[in-house]
Protein backbone atom coordinates (compact mmCIF):
# COMPACT_ATOMS: atom_id res chain seq x y z
CA UNK A 1 0.00 0.00 0.00
CA UNK A 2 2.80 2.41 0.81
CA UNK A 3 4.07 1.98 -2.74
CA UNK A 4 0.67 2.79 -4.11
CA UNK A 5 0.41 5.81 -1.82
CA UNK A 6 3.75 6.99 -3.02
CA UNK A 7 2.87 6.73 -6.70
CA UNK A 8 -0.42 8.53 -6.21
CA UNK A 9 1.16 11.39 -4.35
CA UNK A 10 4.06 11.65 -6.80
CA UNK A 11 1.64 11.91 -9.67
CA UNK A 12 -0.46 14.46 -7.82
CA UNK A 13 2.61 16.58 -7.17
CA UNK A 14 3.70 16.27 -10.79
CA UNK A 15 0.24 17.31 -11.90
CA UNK A 16 0.25 20.32 -9.62
CA UNK A 17 3.75 21.35 -10.58
CA UNK A 18 2.75 21.37 -14.24
CA UNK A 19 0.07 23.93 -13.51
CA UNK A 20 2.57 26.45 -12.25
CA UNK A 21 5.07 25.77 -15.04
CA UNK A 22 6.18 28.19 -17.73
CA UNK A 23 4.16 29.26 -20.76
CA UNK A 24 2.93 26.78 -23.30
CA UNK A 25 5.35 26.62 -26.22
CA UNK A 26 3.06 25.40 -29.00
CA UNK A 27 0.27 27.22 -30.81
CA UNK A 28 -3.17 25.78 -30.07
CA UNK A 29 -5.86 26.05 -32.77
CA UNK A 30 -9.48 24.88 -33.01
CA UNK A 31 -12.50 25.45 -35.22
CA UNK A 32 -14.00 24.86 -38.63
CA UNK A 33 -13.60 21.44 -40.18
CA UNK A 34 -13.52 23.17 -43.58
CA UNK A 35 -10.44 25.16 -42.59
CA UNK A 36 -8.85 22.17 -40.81
CA UNK A 37 -7.13 20.67 -43.88
CA UNK A 38 -5.64 24.04 -44.79
CA UNK A 39 -4.58 24.74 -41.23
CA UNK A 40 -2.95 21.33 -40.90
CA UNK A 41 -1.08 21.77 -44.19
CA UNK A 42 0.27 25.10 -42.90
CA UNK A 43 1.00 23.70 -39.44
CA UNK A 44 2.97 20.83 -40.95
CA UNK A 45 5.05 23.10 -43.20
CA UNK A 46 5.53 25.53 -40.28
CA UNK A 47 6.82 22.77 -38.02
CA UNK A 48 9.19 21.54 -40.71
CA UNK A 49 10.73 24.86 -41.56
CA UNK A 50 10.76 26.91 -38.37
CA UNK A 51 12.36 26.26 -35.03
CA UNK A 52 8.94 26.12 -33.33
CA UNK A 53 6.87 23.07 -32.41
CA UNK A 54 4.15 22.10 -34.87
CA UNK A 55 0.88 23.83 -33.89
CA UNK A 56 -1.88 21.56 -32.59
CA UNK A 57 -5.00 21.86 -34.76
CA UNK A 58 -8.41 20.67 -33.60
CA UNK A 59 -11.62 20.68 -35.58
CA UNK A 60 -15.22 20.65 -34.30
CA UNK A 61 -16.91 23.37 -36.31
CA UNK A 62 -16.73 27.15 -36.59
CA UNK A 63 -19.18 27.84 -33.78
CA UNK A 64 -17.54 25.42 -31.36
CA UNK A 65 -14.13 26.87 -32.18
CA UNK A 66 -15.22 30.46 -31.67
CA UNK A 67 -16.93 29.50 -28.42
CA UNK A 68 -13.67 28.09 -27.06
CA UNK A 69 -11.78 31.07 -28.46
CA UNK A 70 -14.04 33.39 -26.46
CA UNK A 71 -13.66 31.47 -23.20
CA UNK A 72 -10.97 33.81 -21.99
CA UNK A 73 -7.33 34.83 -22.16
CA UNK A 74 -4.56 32.60 -20.87
CA UNK A 75 -2.53 29.52 -21.49
CA UNK A 76 -5.36 27.06 -21.14
CA UNK A 77 -7.41 28.73 -23.87
CA UNK A 78 -6.80 28.43 -27.61
CA UNK A 79 -4.81 31.02 -29.55
CA UNK A 80 -6.52 30.80 -32.93
CA UNK A 81 -10.05 29.95 -34.01
CA UNK A 82 -10.61 28.78 -37.58
CA UNK A 83 -13.97 29.72 -39.08
CA UNK A 84 -15.75 29.18 -42.35
CA UNK A 85 -17.83 32.30 -41.70
CA UNK A 86 -17.20 35.72 -40.18
CA UNK A 87 -17.44 36.07 -36.40
CA UNK A 88 -20.91 37.22 -35.29
CA UNK A 89 -21.52 40.36 -33.19
CA UNK A 90 -23.02 38.14 -30.47
CA UNK A 91 -19.79 36.13 -30.37
CA UNK A 92 -17.70 39.30 -30.17
CA UNK A 93 -19.83 40.30 -27.16
CA UNK A 94 -19.27 36.97 -25.42
CA UNK A 95 -15.56 37.33 -26.14
CA UNK A 96 -15.49 40.81 -24.62
CA UNK A 97 -17.34 39.63 -21.51
CA UNK A 98 -14.63 37.05 -20.96
CA UNK A 99 -11.80 39.50 -21.49
CA UNK A 100 -11.00 38.64 -25.10
CA UNK A 101 -11.18 42.18 -26.39
CA UNK A 102 -8.38 42.14 -28.94
CA UNK A 103 -9.11 39.96 -31.96
CA UNK A 104 -7.32 39.98 -35.29
CA UNK A 105 -9.39 38.80 -38.23
CA UNK A 106 -7.45 37.09 -41.02
CA UNK A 107 -9.17 36.13 -44.25
CA UNK A 108 -7.24 33.30 -45.90
CA UNK A 109 -9.13 32.89 -49.17
CA UNK A 110 -12.33 31.53 -50.59
CA UNK A 111 -13.92 28.12 -50.68
CA UNK A 112 -16.36 27.11 -53.39
CA UNK A 113 -19.41 25.05 -52.54
CA UNK A 114 -20.30 22.54 -55.22
CA UNK A 115 -23.29 20.35 -55.96
CA UNK A 116 -22.15 16.92 -57.07
CA UNK A 117 -23.75 13.59 -57.91
CA UNK A 118 -22.60 10.06 -58.67
CA UNK A 119 -20.12 9.98 -61.56
CA UNK A 120 -22.17 7.39 -63.47
CA UNK A 121 -25.47 9.25 -63.10
CA UNK A 122 -27.15 12.12 -64.95
CA UNK A 123 -25.50 15.48 -65.56
CA UNK A 124 -27.14 18.50 -64.00
CA UNK A 125 -27.21 22.19 -64.83
CA UNK A 126 -28.87 23.82 -61.83
CA UNK A 127 -30.02 27.29 -60.96
CA UNK A 128 -30.56 28.33 -57.32
CA UNK A 129 -34.31 28.45 -58.09
CA UNK A 130 -34.26 24.70 -58.91
CA UNK A 131 -32.93 23.91 -55.46
CA UNK A 132 -35.37 26.21 -53.74
CA UNK A 133 -38.31 24.61 -55.56
CA UNK A 134 -36.97 21.12 -54.85
CA UNK A 135 -36.09 21.53 -51.17
CA UNK A 136 -38.38 24.19 -49.67
CA UNK A 137 -40.75 22.86 -47.04
CA UNK A 138 -43.63 24.90 -48.39
CA UNK A 139 -44.14 26.74 -51.66
CA UNK A 140 -46.49 29.65 -52.30
CA UNK A 141 -49.34 28.57 -54.59
CA UNK A 142 -52.21 30.90 -55.45
CA UNK A 143 -51.86 32.99 -52.33
CA UNK A 144 -51.41 30.19 -49.78
CA UNK A 145 -48.45 28.13 -48.61
CA UNK A 146 -48.70 24.50 -49.68
CA UNK A 147 -46.44 21.57 -48.80
CA UNK A 148 -43.81 21.08 -51.50
CA UNK A 149 -45.31 18.64 -54.06
CA UNK A 150 -42.12 18.12 -56.12
CA UNK A 151 -40.54 14.65 -55.91
CA UNK A 152 -38.50 14.52 -59.12
CA UNK A 153 -36.11 17.03 -60.64
CA UNK A 154 -38.04 17.30 -63.90
CA UNK A 155 -41.12 18.31 -61.94
CA UNK A 156 -39.09 21.27 -60.71
CA UNK A 157 -38.00 22.28 -64.19
CA UNK A 158 -38.78 20.33 -67.35
CA UNK A 159 -35.19 20.45 -68.70
CA UNK A 160 -33.80 18.60 -65.69
CA UNK A 161 -33.48 14.80 -65.82
CA UNK A 162 -36.33 12.61 -64.61
CA UNK A 163 -34.60 11.60 -61.39
CA UNK A 164 -36.07 11.43 -57.88
CA UNK A 165 -35.02 14.31 -55.63
CA UNK A 166 -32.58 13.09 -53.00
CA UNK A 167 -30.40 15.82 -51.54
CA UNK A 168 -27.67 15.44 -48.90
CA UNK A 169 -27.11 18.87 -47.43
CA UNK A 170 -24.85 19.95 -44.54
CA UNK A 171 -26.47 19.90 -41.09
CA UNK A 172 -27.12 23.10 -39.20
CA UNK A 173 -23.92 22.93 -37.12
CA UNK A 174 -21.83 23.41 -40.26
CA UNK A 175 -20.77 26.83 -41.53
CA UNK A 176 -21.42 25.43 -45.01
CA UNK A 177 -25.14 25.24 -44.23
CA UNK A 178 -25.39 29.00 -43.85
CA UNK A 179 -23.78 29.61 -47.21
CA UNK A 180 -26.02 26.99 -48.78
CA UNK A 181 -29.12 28.64 -47.32
CA UNK A 182 -28.09 32.13 -48.26
CA UNK A 183 -26.52 31.63 -51.68
CA UNK A 184 -28.76 28.85 -52.96
CA UNK A 185 -32.10 28.65 -51.14
CA UNK A 186 -32.64 32.34 -50.47
CA UNK A 187 -31.27 33.33 -53.87
CA UNK A 188 -33.52 30.72 -55.50
CA UNK A 189 -36.46 32.01 -53.51
CA UNK A 190 -35.85 35.50 -54.90
CA UNK A 191 -35.15 34.32 -58.46
CA UNK A 192 -38.29 32.23 -58.65
CA UNK A 193 -40.45 35.08 -57.46
CA UNK A 194 -41.48 33.09 -54.41
CA UNK A 195 -40.08 35.71 -52.03
CA UNK A 196 -42.36 38.39 -53.46
CA UNK A 197 -45.34 36.05 -53.29
CA UNK A 198 -44.60 35.24 -49.64
CA UNK A 199 -44.11 38.93 -48.78
CA UNK A 200 -47.50 39.73 -50.28
CA UNK A 201 -49.08 37.00 -48.22
CA UNK A 202 -47.57 37.83 -44.84
CA UNK A 203 -47.86 41.59 -45.03
CA UNK A 204 -44.21 42.48 -45.81
CA UNK A 205 -42.59 40.69 -42.88
CA UNK A 206 -39.14 40.19 -44.42
CA UNK A 207 -37.60 38.13 -41.62
CA UNK A 208 -40.46 35.67 -41.66
CA UNK A 209 -40.38 35.50 -45.45
CA UNK A 210 -36.65 34.76 -45.51
CA UNK A 211 -37.04 32.14 -42.80
CA UNK A 212 -39.74 30.51 -44.88
CA UNK A 213 -37.47 30.58 -47.95
CA UNK A 214 -34.74 28.78 -46.03
CA UNK A 215 -36.98 26.21 -44.34
CA UNK A 216 -35.98 22.85 -45.76
CA UNK A 217 -38.48 20.02 -46.22
CA UNK A 218 -38.25 17.39 -43.54
CA UNK A 219 -39.29 14.30 -45.51
CA UNK A 220 -36.39 12.08 -46.55
CA UNK A 221 -36.04 13.78 -49.93
CA UNK A 222 -33.61 16.09 -48.16
CA UNK A 223 -31.22 14.66 -45.61
CA UNK A 224 -29.13 16.74 -43.20
CA UNK A 225 -25.60 15.41 -42.91
CA UNK A 226 -24.10 16.25 -39.54
CA UNK A 227 -20.85 14.43 -40.22
CA UNK A 228 -18.21 15.45 -42.71
CA UNK A 229 -18.13 15.37 -46.49
CA UNK A 230 -16.89 11.78 -46.28
CA UNK A 231 -20.33 10.85 -44.92
CA UNK A 232 -22.07 12.70 -47.77
CA UNK A 233 -19.86 10.82 -50.23
CA UNK A 234 -20.74 7.49 -48.62
CA UNK A 235 -24.46 8.33 -48.87
CA UNK A 236 -24.12 9.10 -52.59
CA UNK A 237 -22.16 5.86 -53.06
CA UNK A 238 -25.09 4.01 -51.55
CA UNK A 239 -27.84 5.93 -53.36
CA UNK A 240 -27.18 6.65 -57.04
CA UNK A 241 -29.95 9.29 -57.08
CA UNK A 242 -28.27 11.32 -54.36
CA UNK A 243 -26.94 14.82 -54.94
CA UNK A 244 -24.64 16.21 -52.29
CA UNK A 245 -23.23 19.53 -51.19
CA UNK A 246 -19.41 19.52 -50.98
CA UNK A 247 -16.50 21.89 -50.63
CA UNK A 248 -14.53 22.43 -53.83
CA UNK A 249 -11.37 20.92 -52.39
CA UNK A 250 -13.19 17.78 -51.28
CA UNK A 251 -14.66 17.40 -54.74
CA UNK A 252 -11.27 17.87 -56.39
CA UNK A 253 -9.83 15.10 -54.24
CA UNK A 254 -12.64 12.73 -55.19
CA UNK A 255 -13.20 13.74 -58.82
CA UNK A 256 -13.07 10.08 -59.89
CA UNK A 257 -16.26 9.33 -57.93
CA UNK A 258 -18.30 12.52 -58.34
CA UNK A 259 -19.76 14.54 -61.18
CA UNK A 260 -20.12 18.24 -60.50
CA UNK A 261 -23.16 20.28 -61.52
CA UNK A 262 -23.04 23.78 -62.96
CA UNK A 263 -24.84 26.55 -61.12
CA UNK A 264 -26.45 29.19 -63.34
CA UNK A 265 -24.37 27.83 -66.21
CA UNK A 266 -20.98 28.19 -64.49
CA UNK A 267 -18.85 25.19 -63.53
CA UNK A 268 -17.02 25.62 -60.22
CA UNK A 269 -13.24 26.01 -60.43
CA UNK A 270 -10.65 28.12 -58.65
CA UNK A 271 -10.79 30.57 -61.59
CA UNK A 272 -14.57 31.00 -61.69
CA UNK A 273 -14.70 31.36 -57.91
CA UNK A 274 -11.87 33.90 -57.78
CA UNK A 275 -13.54 35.96 -60.50
CA UNK A 276 -16.88 35.76 -58.68
CA UNK A 277 -18.61 34.19 -61.70
CA UNK A 278 -19.49 31.03 -59.78
CA UNK A 279 -22.13 32.21 -57.32
CA UNK A 280 -21.77 29.82 -54.38
CA UNK A 281 -18.59 30.61 -52.49
CA UNK A 282 -17.62 31.97 -49.12
CA UNK A 283 -14.58 33.46 -47.44
CA UNK A 284 -12.61 31.45 -44.87
CA UNK A 285 -11.09 33.06 -41.80
CA UNK A 286 -8.98 32.56 -38.78
CA UNK A 287 -9.09 34.72 -35.68
CA UNK A 288 -6.03 35.45 -33.56
CA UNK A 289 -6.16 36.31 -29.88
CA UNK A 290 -3.92 39.37 -29.90
CA UNK A 291 -3.19 39.10 -26.17
CA UNK A 292 -1.38 35.81 -26.87
CA UNK A 293 0.87 37.17 -29.61
CA UNK A 294 3.66 38.08 -27.21
CA UNK A 295 3.30 35.15 -24.82
CA UNK A 296 2.91 32.15 -27.11
CA UNK A 297 6.11 31.57 -29.08
CA UNK A 298 5.59 31.16 -32.80
CA UNK A 299 2.04 32.53 -32.91
CA UNK A 300 2.93 35.64 -34.89
CA UNK A 301 5.24 33.64 -37.16
CA UNK A 302 2.56 31.03 -37.82
CA UNK A 303 -0.01 33.67 -38.78
CA UNK A 304 2.46 35.46 -41.03
CA UNK A 305 3.55 32.16 -42.60
CA UNK A 306 -0.09 31.18 -43.23
CA UNK A 307 -0.79 34.28 -45.34
CA UNK A 308 2.63 34.43 -47.02
CA UNK A 309 2.75 34.18 -50.82
CA UNK A 310 4.55 30.83 -50.58
CA UNK A 311 1.59 29.28 -48.75
CA UNK A 312 -1.62 31.17 -49.48
CA UNK A 313 -0.61 32.57 -52.88
CA UNK A 314 -2.13 31.27 -56.12
CA UNK A 315 0.75 28.78 -56.62
CA UNK A 316 1.05 27.69 -52.99
CA UNK A 317 0.04 24.38 -51.45
CA UNK A 318 -3.31 25.72 -50.22
CA UNK A 319 -4.39 26.70 -53.73
CA UNK A 320 -3.14 23.29 -54.83
CA UNK A 321 -5.52 21.72 -52.33
CA UNK A 322 -8.53 23.72 -53.52
CA UNK A 323 -8.45 27.06 -51.71
CA UNK A 324 -9.18 30.02 -53.93
CA UNK A 325 -6.52 32.48 -52.93
CA UNK A 326 -7.48 35.93 -51.87
CA UNK A 327 -6.88 38.69 -54.45
CA UNK A 328 -6.21 41.07 -51.55
CA UNK A 329 -3.55 38.89 -49.96
CA UNK A 330 -1.06 41.74 -49.68
CA UNK A 331 -3.45 43.75 -47.48
CA UNK A 332 -4.07 40.73 -45.30
CA UNK A 333 -0.34 40.21 -44.87
CA UNK A 334 -0.19 43.80 -43.62
CA UNK A 335 -3.06 43.20 -41.21
CA UNK A 336 -1.09 40.35 -39.66
CA UNK A 337 2.20 42.23 -39.64
CA UNK A 338 0.66 45.36 -38.07
CA UNK A 339 -1.62 43.37 -35.76
CA UNK A 340 -4.63 45.38 -36.94
CA UNK A 341 -7.51 44.60 -34.61
CA UNK A 342 -11.03 43.70 -35.66
CA UNK A 343 -13.52 46.58 -35.73
CA UNK A 344 -11.02 49.13 -34.37
CA UNK A 345 -11.34 47.70 -30.86
Amino acid sequence: MSLADLTVSTLAIAALSSTTAAARDNVQIAGSSTVLPYASIVAEAFGENFGFPTPVVESGGSSAGLKRFCEGVGEHTIDIANASRAIKPSEIEVCAENGVTEIIEVRIGFDGIVLASDIDGNSFAFTPADWYLALAAELPVDGTMRANPNTTWNAVRADLPDQPIRAFIPGTKHGTREVFEEKILLQGCKDSGALDAILQMNGRDEDAAEASCMAVRTDDLSVDIDGDYTETLARIDADANGIGVFGLSFFENNADKLKVATVSGIAPSTETIASGAYPVSRPLFFYIKAAHLDTIPGLQDYAAFFVSDDIAGPDGPLADYGLVSDPELAEIQETVANRTLLGGM
Binding site: L11, A14, A15, S17, S18, A21, A22, R24, D25, N26, Q28, A30, L36, A39, S40, A43, E44, G47, P53, T54, V56, V57, E58, S59, G60
Partner: peptide, 27 residues
Protein backbone atom coordinates in the same frame (compact mmCIF):
# COMPACT_ATOMS: atom_id res chain seq x y z
CA UNK B 1 -11.04 13.01 -25.45
CA UNK B 2 -13.04 15.14 -27.88
CA UNK B 3 -13.71 17.77 -25.25
CA UNK B 4 -10.24 18.01 -23.77
CA UNK B 5 -8.61 18.77 -27.09
CA UNK B 6 -7.00 15.43 -27.89
CA UNK B 7 -8.94 15.00 -31.13
CA UNK B 8 -6.42 17.08 -32.97
CA UNK B 9 -3.74 17.26 -35.61
CA UNK B 10 -0.50 16.68 -33.69
CA UNK B 11 2.85 16.27 -35.41
CA UNK B 12 5.44 16.47 -32.62
CA UNK B 13 6.21 13.42 -30.52
CA UNK B 14 5.12 14.17 -26.95
CA UNK B 15 7.89 13.90 -24.37
CA UNK B 16 7.04 11.92 -21.24
CA UNK B 17 8.55 14.65 -19.09
CA UNK B 18 9.88 18.13 -19.69
CA UNK B 19 11.06 20.63 -17.13
CA UNK B 20 8.85 23.39 -18.50
CA UNK B 21 5.67 21.44 -19.00
CA UNK B 22 5.83 18.65 -16.43
CA UNK B 23 4.73 15.05 -16.68
CA UNK B 24 2.82 13.85 -19.79
CA UNK B 25 1.88 17.45 -20.57
CA UNK B 26 2.81 17.77 -24.23
CA UNK B 27 0.01 17.55 -26.77
Amino acid sequence: LLLIGMVAFVRDYPAAYTDEAGLFAEA
